[in-house]
Amino acid sequence: MDVSVEKKIQMLGTMIVSRKFSDALRKLCKIKDKIPGMMIVADGQEAVGSGVCAALEPEDAIITNHRSHNHLLAKGADPKALMAEIFGKKTGCNKGKSGTLHLAVPEINAPCTTTVVGATLPIAVGRAFAQQYRKEPQVTVCFFGDGAADEGSFHESLNLAALWQLPLIFVCENNLYAGGQRYEEHTRVTDMADRAGGYGMPGIIVDGNDAPAVYNAALEARQRAVSGNGPTLIECKTYRWGGHSETDPHEYQPRDEIKAWQEKCPIRRLSEALSDQGAVTAAHMAQMMSQAEEVVEEAVRFAEQSPYPAPREALEDVYA
């Protein structure tokens, strides 16, 4: 299906903000005592979050994993609140409890980011069940990596979601690596999408660096889900440009492989397509870039100027 220019520009905008957000984090995390914990970013994978989320309604939910920033920004999370949380500040979206790895933004229907690999799937089953139960015309999207498909939870979740025809979209973000393992070092199946058939749901393969293609696949899956025809597994083939985390020297990742994938940058790809179409000019592009930079700079400023929570605030929020 032809994707409108407005949609494409929207997706491009989200991807650029995501990239700039990550640019900032990759620098900031190297400064001692600036950001607590392990820094995990997703440069080169922006088309997945932006393409999928562009196909969603605000009431649709996403459940995401340790590599969540792009997904959350694309779903509409406030960059300031995310950044402050990543800094461990009181003004962060989770008051400093979650940090970079567990950002929860229920107000935009992104209620759970879990770092337990494979844990997004069963929770998404529950979220989608609630939508079906209440006969809401909404879907839940579950993001996970190719590595997560090796956890038992993947298999249990696909089976149950298909059995009950839940309004769920399983988005496997196959970035060719799971930690230090290349894809073919952790599974024999060529395409993760093939596993869908084993549970009785469609498995779609999409070029994960092509935002409009991801958008179309998600839109179709959403349509299937809301019309009561059950879940879909979408495998987005993409690539992790950096190491697993920013402290990973990732020598196991061939440098020419990285280069080749950087040539397929999803942002450049969509912006070139749009300019070939005559839909954006160089000036327009430059403006999008500087706007995104401003958004991220403002978020960093907000995070830096925000106070830390008081120590005893650690005791709050355990129980309702």
Partner: peptide, 16 residues
């Protein structure tokens, strides 16, 4: 440790 999950923010984690 107090009866809470381990929080991320440095002052909170130190409190833990």
């Amino acid at each position: 440790g107090p009866d809470i999950p381990v929080p991320v923010s440095p002052p909170l984690e130190r409190f833990y």
